[in-house]
């Protein structure tokens, strides 16, 4: 449900003239709620930015979200993250 709430809040903020990007860990819900820009990761609940204290991972994911803000050209875009949970090594 958190992903639905993120999408709904995101839509309200975008409506006020602010460019938004939301992280999603449940793609199916983002497809239905349709936030303006989404960065999707196949990560477990409570770990949208990655593993605890893995700063390189968290910074990378945060920067990817910022990139979506810069690159998205049409409403409803969902960018799929290439970083697999506990498979990708962040160096």
């Amino acid at each position: 449900m958190c992903n639905q709430t993120v999408g709904l809040v995101q839509r309200e903020i975008e409506t006020q003239g602010i460019s938004t990007v939301g992280v999603s860990i449940v793609r199916e819900i983002s497809e239905k709620v349709k936030p303006p820009r989404t960065y999707f990761l196949k990560y477990p609940f409570g770990h949208a930015l990655g593993e605890p204290f893995n700063k390189k991972q968290q910074v990378t994911i945060f920067k990817e979200c910022l990139k979506v803000l810069e690159s998205a050209q049409k409403p409803g875009v969902i960018v799929d993250s290439p970083y697999r949970w506990r498979k990708h090594r962040f160096n």
Partner: peptide, 10 residues
């Protein structure tokens, strides 16, 4: 006067 917002779920 915020320009951008980043939202993170649980």
């Amino acid at each position: 006067k915020v320009d951008i917002a980043v939202l993170v779920p649980a």
